[in-house]
Amino acid sequence: MHNFGTPGDSIRWIELVDQLEGRLDKLAQTFTARVREIPEYGESQVTVPEIRDTARETFRRLTHGLRGGEADNGRDGLLAFASDLGSKRARAGIPPESLTSAVRLDFSILWAELLEIAAPDDAGLLASRVDLVWRVVDEFATRTHMSYLTERVRMAQEESSIQREFIARLFNQSTLSAETSAQVGSALGISPDAWCGLVAAGGEAGAGLRAASAQFGSGLQLRHRLFLHESGGTTYLFWPLPAPRATPRGAPVQVPQLPPSLAGIPCGFVPEVHGLRALPAAARTAESLAALIRPNDSGPLSADAAWARLANQNLQDAGLDLAAQVEEALEECRGGERERLMETVRHFLSTGNITVTAEQLFCHRNTILNRLNRFEELTGIDLTVPSQAARLVVAWA
């Protein structure tokens, strides 16, 4: 039995390390076989020869580090090799947990080989050197993992920069060619013909959209992938939607989906945009809807919900104020007649039904008819005619 720390121990330890170094091919083959059992390695773009060659070089550098006093001489080379390995595995798309599983194999394979070549009376020597073996392998594993994470961050930044460039190209062209649409789709990882949802907002709501985007990050493995664009004080977010589902008759129907993080942000919302080429026009629509947001709006505003507001705004921009015309026509009302007429008309516009309106206002049906006739007499608007009723809906939007 060897005594710990004696010159004989050091000599015997170097003998064992020399034997390890003579078995590099066997160590590499064992590692290659076991690492290929990790699914992500078996399916990755890292080839078997590359895994084997890398494993051989890894074990060569590790055994050099096990030489005790000579360990520091090869430490820089070992860590440089670990840094390069971590970077390569990140670029190869190996998941972090798979990389960790692979690197952990180094210690078990080295230690198993040491046990195989050691003599029975080397037990005390191995016990005294287990910390050294673990320390060398752990330092290698830590540097590999740190380099891997650094490279992943760098890749994410590069991807984000490339995506921003292509998204800007997408929004800054009024008419997109099929070629440009395909290029943008390839850069973003979505089909150029994909259905998308889109929102737009400025000010505080725009900041909310940016926060939602930052929360999701690149979103590559999330249900909703949010893509951000900012221009002229307006923030835009868009995301791909699932493929349309087929109806019983076989016609595809798109079911809009709003990411939960956007549900409480008042913004312009276009729920269905078919294809990337339609996004610039949809962005203009969303921006127009965002301009119609009111203080009591608590979430996204779509054209279905705000078409009357949008029409009213466009008419006012053209110098036509329908609401003012109605107000002027009702000026001859006396007492509470104006309020009663407006209340009755608003209820009728929301239901389109005389009987339901009467029930809501606790009035006789004839009373409702009389009020609608009086309103028509004063304003010239017959609410039973859809085109005239729509005029009032827009006026009061």
Rank of each mutant, 00 (worst) to 15 (best):
residue 2 H to L: 15
residue 8 G to K: 04
residue 8 G to P: 01
residue 13 W to R: 03
residue 15 E to H: 01
residue 22 G to E: 05
residue 22 G to L: 02
residue 25 D to E: 15
residue 25 D to N: 10
residue 26 K to D: 15
residue 26 K to I: 12
residue 34 R to A: 12
residue 36 R to K: 13
residue 38 I to Q: 12
residue 39 P to S: 08
residue 44 S to R: 10
residue 47 T to C: 06
residue 49 P to I: 04
residue 53 D to M: 06
residue 60 R to P: 01
residue 65 G to C: 10
residue 66 L to K: 00
residue 70 E to F: 11
residue 75 R to W: 13
residue 79 L to S: 06
residue 80 A to E: 15
residue 83 S to P: 07
residue 92 A to H: 11
residue 93 G to I: 12
residue 96 P to T: 07
residue 97 E to K: 05
residue 99 L to C: 10
residue 105 L to V: 04
residue 108 S to I: 11
residue 112 A to T: 07
residue 113 E to D: 10
residue 115 L to T: 04
residue 119 A to N: 03
residue 120 P to N: 03
residue 123 A to W: 01
residue 124 G to K: 09
residue 129 R to I: 02
residue 130 V to N: 01
residue 138 D to E: 13
residue 146 M to W: 03
residue 147 S to P: 04
residue 148 Y to M: 12
residue 148 Y to T: 05
residue 149 L to P: 00
residue 149 L to T: 03
residue 150 T to D: 15
residue 155 M to E: 13
residue 162 I to G: 00
residue 165 E to H: 10
residue 169 R to N: 07
residue 169 R to S: 11
residue 169 R to G: 11
residue 170 L to E: 07
residue 170 L to M: 09
residue 187 A to N: 12
residue 187 A to L: 09
residue 190 I to F: 02
residue 194 A to H: 05
residue 194 A to S: 15
residue 196 C to H: 07
residue 198 L to T: 13
residue 199 V to S: 07
residue 201 A to N: 05
residue 204 E to H: 13
residue 206 G to W: 09
residue 208 G to R: 06
residue 209 L to F: 06
residue 210 R to V: 14
residue 214 A to Y: 01
residue 219 G to Y: 05
residue 219 G to H: 08
residue 231 S to F: 09
residue 231 S to N: 12
residue 239 W to S: 09
residue 239 W to E: 03
residue 240 P to A: 13
residue 240 P to I: 11
residue 241 L to C: 07
residue 254 Q to Y: 02
residue 254 Q to V: 14
residue 258 L to R: 07
residue 259 P to Y: 04
residue 264 G to Q: 12
residue 264 G to C: 04
residue 265 I to G: 02
residue 266 P to V: 05
residue 275 G to T: 09
residue 279 L to Q: 10
residue 282 A to F: 07
residue 291 A to C: 10
residue 291 A to V: 04
residue 292 L to M: 13
residue 294 R to E: 15
residue 297 D to Q: 08
residue 299 G to Q: 00
residue 299 G to F: 00
residue 301 L to P: 01
residue 302 S to M: 06
residue 307 W to K: 04
residue 308 A to D: 14
residue 311 A to F: 03
residue 312 N to C: 11
residue 312 N to H: 11
residue 313 Q to H: 14
residue 318 A to S: 02
residue 320 L to S: 00
residue 320 L to Q: 00
residue 320 L to D: 00
residue 323 A to T: 04
residue 324 A to F: 08
residue 324 A to S: 14
residue 328 E to S: 13
residue 328 E to I: 09
residue 331 E to R: 15
residue 332 E to N: 11
residue 340 R to V: 08
residue 340 R to I: 07
residue 343 E to G: 04
residue 343 E to Y: 00
residue 346 R to H: 09
residue 347 H to V: 14
residue 349 L to Y: 00
residue 352 G to T: 03
residue 353 N to V: 06
residue 361 L to G: 08
residue 365 R to F: 06
residue 367 T to A: 03
residue 368 I to N: 07
residue 371 R to L: 06
residue 372 L to R: 02
residue 373 N to K: 10
residue 374 R to V: 10
residue 376 E to F: 08
residue 377 E to L: 09
residue 380 G to V: 09
residue 384 T to Y: 08
residue 384 T to S: 13
residue 387 S to P: 00
residue 388 Q to E: 14
residue 390 A to E: 15
